[in-house]
């Protein structure tokens, strides 16, 4: 059927608006990539506004010479790998058990989890509990805190409810297969997609986490990458921003100058694992959202 004139106009406007939005979203990303490989002089004068000018890897060299970045990278990798493993151990078996319709009290237990989505003790009591558990200023605090998210638990539970046929469980029971061996031998092998989705959601959260580290860590040798990034990108830059309003200190200016050279490179380096993985795994993320939205 031929589209009417009005519909064709609609189509045109719709496309134009979407192109515009996409370009606006894309621009800062392209700018950061270009700035990271351009000579900072051109970046600061605004001559470099889209494509790199006078390509240099000086920023990257300086970032890699910075011992803080290496410390941060190492710590973040440790926190992400161990943290995500704990997340999966706490999420997948529990979600599976809660998905079993024959489990007595499943709604009650789910309720206990759900309450925490809408009410929490808040910042200070959480801090005091962590302190009392002697987790303050240890690597464990970043590995254990955020051990399971209710939202992910519900998403995984929904997945199990919708994909594991009841007959499978009954057959296993008739064969005298215990819940544990059923879970390990049958459920886990067919749950690849949900485990991947969960690992990605939790992994990204660990990688990007900064506030827990800010709250719970004092020891610089334990800092994750994001805390060092904060120093380079925010603390230095803010002081540079404020300088326009009067107080200018030579030391700060010097620091800001170095930050100028490395800030874009450091952004790229910190996001590198996600940048590389994103094109391949983005469909998994979307799948995760879709599973979750089937039944909230």
């Amino acid at each position: 059927m031929k589209a009417s004139f009005g519909d064709r106009i609609f189509e045109g406007i719709n496309r134009a608006v979407l192109i515009l939005i996409t370009l606006v979203v894309l621009y800062p990303l392209v700018y950061v990539v270009s700035a990271s490989i351009s000579d900072p002089t051109y970046v600061n004068t605004g001559e470099m506004w889209l494509w790199p000018i006078d390509i240099t890897l000086d920023g990257y060299r300086r970032v890699l010479d910075n011992p803080d970045i290496w410390t941060g990278y190492r710590n973040t990798i440790i926190y992400t790998v161990l943290g995500t493993s704990i997340n999966l151990l706490l999420t997948i078996p529990c979600a599976y058990a809660l998905a079993r319709k024959d489990l007595y009290g499943r709604n009650f237990i789910t309720g206990i989890f759900l309450v925490t989505m809408f009410f929490s003790g808040g910042l200070i009591p959480s801090y005091l509990i962590i302190k009392n558990l002697n987790l303050l200023d240890t690597p464990w605090v970043l590995i254990v805190v955020g051990g399971a998210s209710v939202w992910n638990l519900i998403v995984a539970r929904t997945f199990f409810q919708n994909t594991i046929p009841r007959e499978l469980e009954e057959a296993a029971e008739v064969d005298g297969c215990s819940h544990i061996s059923l879970f390990l031998r049958i459920i886990i092998p067919i749950s690849g997609p949900i485990i991947a989705v969960m690992a990605l959601f939790y992994g990204v959260a660990h990688w990007n986490q900064y506030f827990n580290a800010l709250m719970y860590l004092q020891d610089r040798s334990l800092f994750p990458l994001q805390l060092f990034l904060r120093e380079i990108l925010i603390v230095n830059e803010m002081s540079a921003n404020m300088m326009m309003d009067g107080d200018s200190m030579a030391a700060m200016a010097e620091q800001a100058k170095i930050a100028d050279i490395i800030k874009y490179a450091v952004i790229i380096i910190s996001a590198l694992p996600l940048l590389i993985l994103y094109p391949f795994v983005q469909r998994f993320f979307i799948k995760g959202i879709l599973i979750g939205s089937l039944k909230g």
């Binding site: 999420t91 599976y96 509990i129």
Partner: peptide, 19 residues
């Protein structure tokens, strides 16, 4: 299967509420 997760929520979510 549920116990570790439940313990986690009790320690890190319910204890702060008590706090």
């Amino acid at each position: 299967f549920i116990l570790p997760t439940l313990s986690y929520f009790i320690i890190f979510n319910y204890l702060p509420m008590y706090g």
